[in-house]
Simulated assay, not measured.
Amino acid sequence: MLLLRAREKMMERFRPLLSAHGLTEQQWRIMRALHERGPLEPRQLSDLCTISSPSMAGVLARMEATDLVTKERFAEDQRRVLVSLTATSLELVEALIGEVEARYAELESQMGRQVVERVYRAVDALLEGLERT
């Protein structure tokens, strides 16, 4: 419950920004992942963005319909698909990144850099430990 409460409090800082640009949290996570990693397959996006495969299929279909992503089939295996950002979404990500980073900087200013760094280290350690089990 504590981690869920912390996540919710964090998202309160970002939801209005995403909504103002017509994006959902899931869409933003996908766009950030593609921006940081380049084109990916849907299952890779599901893992990175912690979105279930059935939900991912729906989100990607809506994103493709609104020109936020493109899907391209692999030539050697037509069952596999590669998802990429469009010029529209790339422009949107680049516009939003500055605002997102400013909100993180504001958080750091309010909470203190050391507190934020300790939280990151603790969550990284927790995730690492959970992945080993």
Rank of each mutant, 00 (worst) to 15 (best):
M1E: 09
L2I: 09
L4S: 07
A6V: 13
R7C: 06
E8M: 09
M11C: 01
P16D: 02
L18G: 02
A20V: 02
L23K: 04
L23D: 05
L34M: 06
L34S: 06
E36Q: 13
E36R: 12
P39M: 03
L40D: 01
Q44T: 07
Q44H: 12
L45Y: 04
T50D: 05
T50W: 01
I51L: 02
S53T: 07
S55W: 00
G58T: 02
R62C: 00
M63T: 05
E64W: 00
A65H: 07
T66R: 12
T66D: 07
D67S: 09
T70I: 11
K71E: 07
F74A: 12
E76R: 05
E76Q: 03
Q78Y: 09
V81M: 12
V83I: 14
S84G: 06
L85K: 04
A87K: 13
T88F: 06
V93I: 04
V93H: 00
G98M: 05
G98Y: 07
G98P: 13
E99H: 08
V100L: 10
A102S: 10
E108V: 09
Q110N: 07
G112H: 12
R113D: 12
Q114D: 15
E117D: 15
R118S: 14
V123Q: 07
D124M: 11
D124Y: 13
L130V: 14
